[in-house]
Write a protein that binds this DNA or RNA. Structure first.
Lengths: 216, 216
DNA sequence: GGAATAGTGTCTATGAGACAGTATGAA
DNA sequence: TTCATACTGTCTCATAGACACTATTCC
């Protein structure tokens, strides 16, 4: 068998300055050394249980982040996508709140998904695919919760859905649906700001990957 | 790098005796020689453009079928799924009408998805994943059309949706939605049987992978 | 004409959207 | 008291579901 290059790449989403961003970091090695790219690298069969473990390891070793929401996205493959030869990249996507990104000594950068630089390999296509998946799945799942801190207000959650979906939602309708779908529970405390404080909620533990028939 | 085994596997669905079946065939080589398994095998980097091409080649060489609906399903990987070692299988699923299965000299078998034998590797899990995807996606896409011949009646289409989704649909509602979604076009001729003939329809060429917000 | 299936029309209840209203804390 | 935001109530209109009705063929 001709050897095939096996890698994983991770599209790590976060909300930054009210817009969807992805984490990019400069590549350490050739090809495309120093260029900004998705966190990723070779699968290590001795070390990794499977490609999910490899993705987790990659994320942790390159950005210091442990175990946010992480899901397989799609597998990209072929002769031309990597100059080193025939390759397979199992792509994953992850969601995290900005507060859980390490603050110091990390070389990663946040880039708005609608203003990405040109990336090596087929990484632009991978990000596009991830955006589409995130948007599609957000219409019928609890995904956007993972972009928020562990406790959040209903207004924050609504804004997050709106940002991802690119549409305005009616407050009353949104809350009625949340009530029906019943994937949130009250958290302790309230968000106190300049005005009336808002109740905090958290995603129910058994609903971290919940999907529903209806649409948000 | 430790060498990694790279394969593709294909879950080929068809309706047979009014039930959802998958194509299985006896493995030619070890491990598990002679045992029934999904059509699949090694990716050939010299020959295959990418894993999709590999899946097409596999399907054609093992079953004689060319190019039905074929879509990537999920990538299964790890140390334990294949006794030969650390492996990656990029799984695809395909839909085809029984009439397009070759009639003679093929060694494949049709097995009802709800009465599968025990399969080698993690093939049972792969079929399960494919069933779930097929069911989920059928609620908001034209997928079931690919299980029918190129021209079909609305009643046949409705029965197909019902079989896959496992629910009864109201004829009037179903047709109203078909009308709204507008992914069918009239085909020449009618299905003439024991009673009033039914108009034939076909999937519009630009809708072979159409999805919609609403639900069937 | 009867049986069976194709295809259409209509009533109703549900629920989404729009929007106005009330509640509560900060200044 | 005012302002801004949290939160809730209500009206209306669209539509999914239920089901009855008409149409067309074979016998």
């Amino acid at each position: 068998m001709t050897p095939v290059i096996l890698t994983v790449d991770v599209v790590l989403f976060t909300l930054h300055q009210d817009n969807l961003h992805v984490v990019l970091l400069p590549r350490e090695h050739n090809p495309y050394a120093q260029q900004l790219a998705l966190p990723g690298g070779y699968v290590h069969p001795e070390e990794d249980q499977d490609t999910l473990s490899a993705a987790r390891r990659m994320l942790h070793s390159k950005t210091g982040i442990v175990s946010p929401y992480l899901e397989q996205l799609y597998t990209f493959s072929g002769r031309v996508r990597d100059p080193r030869g025939w390759s397979v990249s199992v792509a994953y996507y992850a969601l995290i709140h900005q507060s859980r990104l390490p603050q110091e000594h990390q070389r990663f950068e946040l880039h708005a998904v609608d203003a990405l630089p040109e990336l090596p390999f087929d990484h632009n296509r991978i990000v596009q695919t991830a955006c589409k998946r995130l948007r599609d799945k957000s219409t019928y799942s609890t995904l956007p919760c993972h972009l928020l801190p562990s406790a959040f207000t209903l207004a924050e959650l609504q804004q997050t859905y709106e940002k991802i979906l690119g549409t305005r939602l009616d407050k009353s309708v949104f809350r009625r649906k949340l009530n029906d779908l019943d994937f949130l529970e009250e958290a302790e405390g309230q968000r106190t700001g300049a005005h009336r404080p808002a109740q905090l909620y958290r995603l129910r533990a058994d609903c971290s990957d919940a999907t529903f028939g209806k649409t948000m």
